[in-house]
Amino acid sequence: MIRIILLRHGETTWNIEGRYQGQEDTPLSPRGIEQGKAAALALKDIHIDRAISSPLSRSHDTCRFAADYHHLPVAKDPRLTEISHGLWEGIHAEEIEARYPEEFHLWHTHPERVQMPEGENLEDVRKRAREAFDEYARSYDGETVLVCAHDAVNKAILCDLLGLPMSHFWQIKQDNACINVIECDHGIWRLVTLNTTTHLGYLVSGIEQKGL
């Protein structure tokens, strides 16, 4: 059996501003750094065999805070990179809604149908993330693996591992620096913990971010 501790990166300035980040390499905000350190402290006494992250700095830095406690290097896996929002990246949610009203509405009602302009769709993200997780399950049997990625990546892979279509994307919440735990035993995945934030001082954040 493999156990994966799946994190979302800490807060960034663009998260606060409601800008769509996608594959733009935005850094953690001061609060995001503290969130990452809090997640790391919560995992300090948990046995972890290896650490893997998206190559984007907001994810890699969040992962590194925890990996440092375990004296582990952080491997970068590009398959964990956030969804490419294409022409939406760097733009405030309100401006996207004004420029692309039909696509924006569809993104929040039927996300599985949206092809980001000059970017990806959720199926693109699902396929590459699932390839990564299936590889981890084959290669790291018997280990506990720390994985740090992004909002859309985490939602897509959690839906897929639970057998849910991407139409359920918005029914899974991923707060900044949240902790999820999933396990795979003989090819069967199960969800153990979802969107835990008690290490950040609250059970429910109440935060609804406008941009991913």
Rank of each mutant, 00 (worst) to 15 (best):
W189C: 04
E89I: 06
L72E: 02
C148I: 12
H199C: 08
E11I: 08
M116R: 14
G119D: 00
L41K: 15
N176H: 02
E131K: 15
N15R: 08
V204E: 11
G90Q: 04
C184F: 00
E34A: 14
G36A: 06
V114A: 07
R50G: 10
L200R: 05
H110N: 12
L158E: 00
L56T: 11
A93K: 04
I172N: 03
R79V: 04
H199N: 04
L87W: 07
G211C: 08
D185W: 00
D185I: 05
A156S: 15
G119Y: 03
I16F: 07
Y20C: 14
E17K: 13
G32P: 00
K210M: 12
E24N: 15
R190A: 05
A93S: 11
N195K: 05
P111F: 05
A132Y: 02
P165E: 11
A42E: 02
R31E: 13
L41T: 12
A38C: 04
Q209S: 07
C148Q: 09
A137E: 02
V74I: 10
I4M: 12
T109Q: 08
I91E: 05
P165Y: 10
C178I: 07
D160H: 10
L41F: 09
L43I: 09
N180L: 09
L28Y: 01
I188F: 04
N176V: 10
T144W: 00
P55D: 14
R19T: 05
E208W: 03
D68E: 14
L43F: 02
C184E: 12
G10K: 11
C159G: 05
A129K: 06
A39P: 01
C63R: 07
G90C: 06
F65Y: 15
L28E: 05
H150N: 10
D141T: 12
R130N: 12
S57P: 00
F169T: 11
D151S: 13
T193M: 15
W170K: 14
V192Y: 01
E118Y: 06
E120W: 01
K127G: 05
E123Y: 13
R126C: 10
I96M: 08
H199P: 02
P27V: 13
L41D: 11
T12A: 09
H47V: 14
F133R: 10
E94M: 05
H85A: 15
L43E: 04
G90M: 06
A149D: 06
D141Q: 11
V147D: 01
R8G: 09
I182S: 01
E94V: 12
D185P: 00
E103K: 14
L28G: 08
R50V: 11
M166L: 15
L72A: 08
A93V: 03
I182A: 01
A39R: 09
A67N: 06
G90A: 09
G211Q: 03
A132M: 08
N180G: 06
I2K: 05
Y69T: 12
A149R: 03
L162V: 08
L212Q: 11
R190S: 14
R64P: 01
L43K: 10
T198F: 04
Y20H: 14
S139C: 07
Y20V: 15
P117R: 14
I33P: 00
R58K: 12
E34P: 01
H105G: 10
T144L: 03
Y136C: 04
S84T: 07
D185Q: 08
H168W: 08
Y136K: 07
G22R: 11
A132H: 09
N154F: 04
R138P: 00
S59T: 15
K37R: 13
R128P: 03
N15T: 04
L200D: 00
R58E: 06
